[in-house]
Simulated scan of single mutants.
Amino acid sequence: MPNQKDSNIEDFAFDYLKSHYSTLYSTKGILISKAEKTKLHGTADGIFALKKPDNTLFIASLNVSQSQQLARLLNRYKKNGLSKFRFVTALIAFAATTFFTRSLGYGILSWVIPVAATLVIFVTHSLLERSYLKHKVEKLLNIFKAQPADEQWLGISISSLAFRHNSLAKHLLNLCERRGIGLITVGKRAKVVQLKDPRTNTCHKGDFVSHYVTEAHIRKTLLGGSFLRVA
């Protein structure tokens, strides 16, 4: 078992989701596979495939490859907020506008204009930086477009406490909510926390198993009743 300093979502997510689906569908017949490729050249870090009570096939995908980048973004924002560079650009704007307005003899406006310009630059920089960070988070989640599944999961090695009073983490939760992505985390205490439930997707042509390169193997294994865990 990994120690508290080495808790990694990949070491816990597979067992957690296996237990989750075993309980949910009252079955031990779950095919678990890692680095599963899709027919459109995407790759799911893990999949969980099973046969539901109505004999239809179900597949869930797991992504943990974005864990490090997302954890870095969220922890940095939690600790530092936006960058201090905003103050530098605001100071430069104040100095530049003060110099020009006084040089041109604007009188009292040589005080008003620099202050107004500084506030505008500071607010604009803050909004643009916040928008950029949100875009980075959204871009990392776009990986799920290449991982079709009945349910999709994101796993991050991060303390659930990092989501408190963290607007960037809240944005991630909102994105997961809108896209129907389940979210699980694991912190230093090696405790898996489920922050978001996934939404079950609808496959309009057959089932999601048909999207994977090993479709024939998955169908044979599940329909034949032989269940293996594949590394």
Results as ranks from 00 to 15, higher is better:
2 P>W: 00
6 D>K: 13
6 D>G: 02
8 N>Q: 15
8 N>E: 14
9 I>L: 03
9 I>T: 04
14 F>V: 13
16 Y>R: 10
18 K>F: 11
19 S>Q: 10
22 S>E: 07
23 T>N: 14
24 L>M: 12
29 G>V: 00
37 K>R: 15
38 T>N: 10
40 L>I: 05
41 H>D: 15
46 G>M: 01
46 G>C: 01
47 I>V: 13
49 A>F: 02
57 L>T: 04
57 L>I: 03
58 F>E: 02
60 A>W: 00
62 L>P: 01
65 S>M: 02
66 Q>H: 12
68 Q>I: 13
68 Q>L: 13
76 R>M: 08
79 K>H: 13
81 G>N: 05
82 L>C: 02
83 S>T: 15
84 K>E: 06
85 F>H: 07
88 V>Q: 04
91 L>K: 03
96 A>N: 07
99 F>K: 12
101 T>Q: 02
101 T>G: 06
103 S>C: 07
103 S>G: 11
105 G>F: 06
107 G>Q: 07
108 I>G: 08
112 V>Y: 00
116 A>R: 04
117 A>E: 06
117 A>R: 14
120 V>M: 12
125 H>V: 13
130 R>E: 14
131 S>N: 14
132 Y>C: 08
134 K>H: 05
135 H>T: 13
137 V>L: 07
137 V>T: 04
141 L>Q: 03
143 I>N: 08
148 P>C: 11
148 P>K: 14
150 D>N: 15
150 D>Q: 09
151 E>A: 03
152 Q>L: 08
153 W>T: 00
154 L>S: 00
156 I>S: 03
157 S>I: 03
159 S>D: 05
159 S>C: 00
160 S>M: 03
160 S>P: 09
165 H>S: 14
166 N>D: 02
167 S>A: 07
169 A>L: 01
172 L>Y: 04
173 L>C: 05
173 L>N: 02
173 L>S: 11
174 N>W: 09
179 R>G: 08
179 R>S: 11
180 G>F: 05
186 V>H: 08
190 A>Y: 04
191 K>I: 12
192 V>C: 03
193 V>W: 09
196 K>C: 05
197 D>P: 08
201 N>H: 15
203 C>S: 10
204 H>P: 04
204 H>F: 12
207 D>L: 00
207 D>E: 11
215 E>R: 11
216 A>K: 15
218 I>C: 01
219 R>E: 01
221 T>A: 14
225 G>M: 02
225 G>E: 02
226 S>I: 14
229 R>Q: 12
229 R>V: 12
231 A>N: 13
